[in-house]
Design a protein around this nucleic acid. Structure first.
Length: 111
DNA sequence: GAGGTGACTGCGA
DNA sequence: CTCGCAGCCACCT
C-alpha cells in the first residue's frame, strides 16, 4: 500500500483543499505535527504528480502566496492557469488575497 | 549503512 | 528594504 509514507500524508491533506482555496507548505507541515519540516511538504509534492489520484499541487503555495512550485509543473504558467481556473487571481506569480483564500487544515479540519 | 537532496521558513546583518 | 545563512526531516541513490 505504501500509504504509510509521509508523502501520502501531504497528498491527502492537499486533496482536502476545497476548490478556489489554497494553503501553504508550513500549514501542512504544522498540521502533520512538524512545523519545521516545511521542506518535507514540498519534497512530497515532488511525488504528487505520480500519486493517485493526482494532487492539486497548484493549490499549495509558499508562505508569501507565491507560486514557488510553478517551475515543477509542465509549464511555468500552468500553475497560474489552474489557479485562475479555480477562480483565484494570480498576479506576478503571486496569489491575490492570499490570506483570504488561505485554507488552514489545522483550522478547517479543526484537529 | 551513509550521504545528498529539496516545490520552505524564520531570523540576522 | 534586500540579501544570506542555518535549521528542519523524510525519501532517494
Amino acid at each position: 500500500m505504501t500509504t504509510d509514507s509521509f508523502y501520502d500524508r501531504v497528498h491527502q491533506v492537499v486533496r482536502l483543499i476545497p476548490s478556489g482555496r489554497i494553503t501553504t507548505y508550513g500549514a501542512i507541515a504544522a498540521y502533520l505535527g512538524s512545523k519545521g519540516s516545511s521542506r518535507m511538504v514540498g519534497y512530497a509534492m515532488n511525488n504528487s504528480f505520480t500519486a493517485i489520484p493526482q494532487v492539486p499541487a497548484h493549490r499549495v503555495v509558499n508562505r508569501q502566496g507565491l507560486l514557488s512550485g510553478k517551475a515543477h509543473f509542465g509549464s511555468p504558467t500552468l500553475m497560474q492557469q489552474l489557479l485562475e481556473n479555480e477562480g483565484i487571481k494570480v498576479i506576478d506569480d503571486k496569489v491575490v488575497d492570499f490570506k483570504i483564500l488561505f485554507w488552514d487544515p489545522a483550522t478547517e479540519l479543526d484537529f
